[in-house]
Design a protein around this nucleic acid. Sequence first.
DNA 1: GGCAATCGATTACACGTGTAATTTGTCGAT
DNA 2: ATCGACAAATTACACGTGTAATCGATTGCC
Lengths: 121, 121
Amino acid sequence: MSISEAEAKVMEALWAQAPQSAEDLFARISGEQDWQLSTLKTLLGRLLAKGAISADKDGRRYLYRPVLERSQYLAEQSQSLVDRLFSGRLAPLVAHFSAQRSLKPDDVAELKALIKQLEQP
Amino acid sequence: MSISEAEAKVMEALWAQAPQSAEDLFARISGEQDWQLSTLKTLLGRLLAKGAISADKDGRRYLYRPVLERSQYLAEQSQSLVDRLFSGRLAPLVAHFSAQRSLKPDDVAELKALIKQLEQP
DNA sequence: GGCAATCGATTACACGTGTAATTTGTCGAT
DNA sequence: ATCGACAAATTACACGTGTAATCGATTGCC
């Protein structure tokens, strides 16, 4: 099962720090996200059901921690986009960004460094 | 309003060739997508409602053509992913792919060529 | 002109999602 | 033992989406 966008925001908060209680998460997420505590609880429940997080009892409350790794989530999402829209190849995506002129000089420099690294393993 | 994944498949078929009738599209999409004609009609209706395509009467049929451009759709989708998962920067996404070892030598070569081009406009 | 074929339009329906209120269960304090 | 606080679980509900059947209108043929 894949996680939704709202659920992903909860995951981000857990990837930033874990474990956290629902209250912790609520405090951390408020400001970013204008949710009722109840909403967050619903999302935690759904993430638990999906196996994306785990919960350990800590006194009267639960402490939640990610099971799904951020890097795995990134991989799924990125791969899916590249597959769906760019025939599974990364270069066309970069070309697209370049054509849109949304590459800052910083990006170009960073990319260049990356490529260099890839060429000399 | 944004278009859904099933709707995007219809758009792809229209981007590949336009204008096309519902029947044309159905023929072109069958094999990729195991839809009933009725399903395709529903999706065309929704795309029309969203303004992503237009329809011109051609005798008893309609001919559909894209209004939303593919490049704009690519831009929205890519930007959204990069914003949500990579702080809006492209380089980290490429780095992620590289770390996943999902870059083939071809890709690296192509990227290198791209970068080169970006440096000497 | 009536009937059948053919389209598009309308209606259907289950499921995921965003958002939340209400209910339930438990622990601590009186 | 009871009551209140609090946390989690359950229930709620509207909306988008995937998938499709059916309805209704138009048109070509006999």
